[in-house]
């Protein structure tokens, strides 16, 4: 099994399934922080998937997208945390 096959047939389907599990938590909650960490996890998983896709398609430029996603996911979580703490 070549490396692109391993990624496209094993790794990405597994991560998609994991993303669905995180999405279940995002919908079910029960509290707002639960949803925030589910979003955070979806961002992290997205980073991993993009990095894997960069290998599978032999496109190192895709790594930049992963970097931007990491930045945005961090800023989003910080913003949510500030908002939660201000609200009390």
């Amino acid at each position: 099994m070549s490396l692109p096959d391993l990624i496209l047939l094993v790794a990405l389907p597994l991560l998609s399934l994991t993303m669905m599990l995180a999405f279940v938590r995002l919908v079910r909650g029960p509290s707002l922080p639960d949803r925030v960490i589910a979003l955070d996890l979806i961002g992290t998983l997205g980073m991993g998937m993009i990095a894997l896709y960069a290998i599978a398609r032999n496109q190192p430029a895709l790594l930049d997208v992963a970097i931007v996603l990491a930045l945005l996911s961090f800023l989003g979580t910080i913003a949510f945390a500030r908002y939660l703490e201000r609200r009390v």
């Binding site: 509290s31 707002l32 922080p33 925030v36 960490i37 955070d40 992290t44 980073m47 790594l63 992963a66 970097i67 990491a70 930045l71 961090f74 979580t77 910080i78 949510f80 945390a81 500030r82 939660l84 703490e85 609200r87 009390v88």
Partner: peptide
């Protein structure tokens, strides 16, 4: 990117944990 994630993940988790404790 690895270094960035290793630095930011604990910070974000700490802020969310702290905020949820107050909520």
């Amino acid at each position: 990117t690895v270094a960035f994630v290793l630095l930011t993940a604990p910070v974000a988790a700490h802020m969310i944990g702290r905020a949820s404790y107050f909520v």
